[in-house]
Design a protein around this nucleic acid. Structure first.
Lengths: 131, 131
DNA sequence: GTTGACCTTCCCATTACGGGAAGGATTATG
DNA sequence: CATAATCCTTCCCGTAATGGGAAGGTCAAC
């Protein structure tokens, strides 16, 4: 398979696939013409990576997941630990976003949003709530 | 004021302050020795930027907010629109994180997490749920 | 006068790619 | 069989918002 085929089948852009090779996530063969020659195993890995990335795992986490995937003697506990760490990280990000949202929402709600210049959002950003 | 002072008072690292100057968010004066000489107005802007960044606004959004802040004839509606767009963006990100979380959480919950190699997380990543 | 704490600029690294150029290979069409 | 379209390759630059650290000038204190 050439790169366009695996791109279509994995859902990843060709650019991304080349990048994944560059950083050692996959090692496709090479044809006599210099073209990458992808095996089914490469495609499987790419599809795996596409899903893992889609769940928000970083590239380095994906690398570990792939290593575990390829290691038939892994302990599922290792996988679970990685996944739970990622769940925690997402939880943290959500909490952070919610906190920012809450603060901004309060400012937005106190803003008239009309043609006048008075704006509690700007004064809120300019200084501590009421000094 | 020198950079260390405004850094301490604004809560921003000196590096960040230099960067903000480089991209034109602030324009501190310069002393004869080449040191940046920050006025109170610079400090106010930096504090404003620190709060806006803390609420998740991008640098370009901060630039617009700062312009509105400095424009005494702005309409509060313009500020509110910017803030609401940002609220929407945060909402979108939260939804995305929650969706990823839900998927991953389902996989994690079906994983024994013991010394055995069988792992639904990995098989889930390897292929569509049940084909 | 010499530390030590500042300040400056400059360059490289980060994350995970995307755009696009320059040029070779393959395939399709006339 | 020539040529055009489509592929492929590598290479280099750009993103967002800094952080790290080097090389070197300045300033305050002792």
């Amino acid at each position: 398979m050439n790169i366009k085929d695996v791109a279509a089948r994995s859902g990843l852009p060709a650019k991304t696939i080349r990048y994944y090779e560059e950083i050692g996530l996959i090692r496709p063969l090479r044809g006599a013409n210099g073209y990458r020659a992808f095996r089914d195993s490469d495609l499987h890995k790419l599809a795996f990576l596409a899903r893992a990335r889609g769940l928000g795992f970083t590239i380095e986490e994906c690398r570990k997941l792939l290593a575990l995937y390829e290691d038939r003697d892994r302990a599922s506990a290792d996988v679970k630990a990685l996944a739970e760490a990622h769940l925690d990280e997402m939880e943290r990000k959500i909490a952070e976003l919610r906190a920012m949202q809450a603060t901004l929402r309060a400012l937005v709600e106190s803003c008239a949003g009309d043609a006048r210049p008075d704006c509690p959002i700007l004064t809120g950003l300019a200084g501590p709530p009421c000094c």
